[in-house]
Design a protein around this nucleic acid. Structure first.
Lengths: 102, 102
DNA sequence: AATATTAATCGTAATATTGCAATTAAACAA
DNA sequence: TTGTTTAATTGCAATATTACGATTAATATT
């Protein structure tokens, strides 16, 4: 029904389709690594809600989490982030600006 | 709760978060302009379903439609597409690849 | 005027998403 | 061992999304 590329683009875009997940990623850009509890406080959503969003980000490979004692340290998976970025650029930068037809 | 930028990014991303809408946009890149019925046939979804997806794409300003007799011609709104692209690049290209922290 | 064509809208069923309270699990500290 | 801290999981309610058949609206054709 759809190409693999279309499905992949949609999958990543869907993950970015909620402001909480955008906020989480931007926070991880800023401070490089972060604990779930800190994100919960920073963003203003309950801990289980943040945990759920982190799970989704992890499921598409954009972040990883490492257990550090009682906490879990989350950060961007740079390798996968780059791959995702290439894919999104392929899609976003495809169009050649022309006069609008209608 | 969220910044305007975060909300805008999420809004656009959400629209890209379904393969049918990705397919519609790619089709509009290819053939520059298209009718609803042609998209329905090309993509393989019922006409009302395509019409609904077109409505969503139009509601965020990424496409426009002009009535041409009994048909409606759809195409990319290049001005808004460029603006959206800038916003998405701001977000996607923000990260500076470092050693993964965890 | 009557018919045909195309797209939008309506109504509805099935499914997915979101958010949180309550609980559980895991690791540490006393 | 007992308590403490942090994050994951569960269960559930509210809402949103998706798809499509049926219908309506608008324009063109005969």
């Amino acid at each position: 029904m759809y190409t693999d590329q279309q499905k992949k683009i949609a999958l990543f875009a869907k993950v970015f389709g909620h402001p909480a997940r955008v906020a989480i990623l931007q926070q991880l850009f800023e401070i490089d690594a972060c604990y779930c509890g800190d994100l919960s406080e920073e963003i203003g959503l309950a801990q289980p809600t943040i945990s759920q969003h982190l799970k989704e980000l992890k499921s598409v490979g954009l972040i990883k989490g490492t257990v550090e004692g009682v906490k879990v340290c989350y950060c961007i998976d740079h390798e996968n982030w780059t791959k995702m970025k290439d894919l999104m650029h392929q899609f976003l930068d495809k169009d050649i600006p022309k006069a609008d037809c209608c």
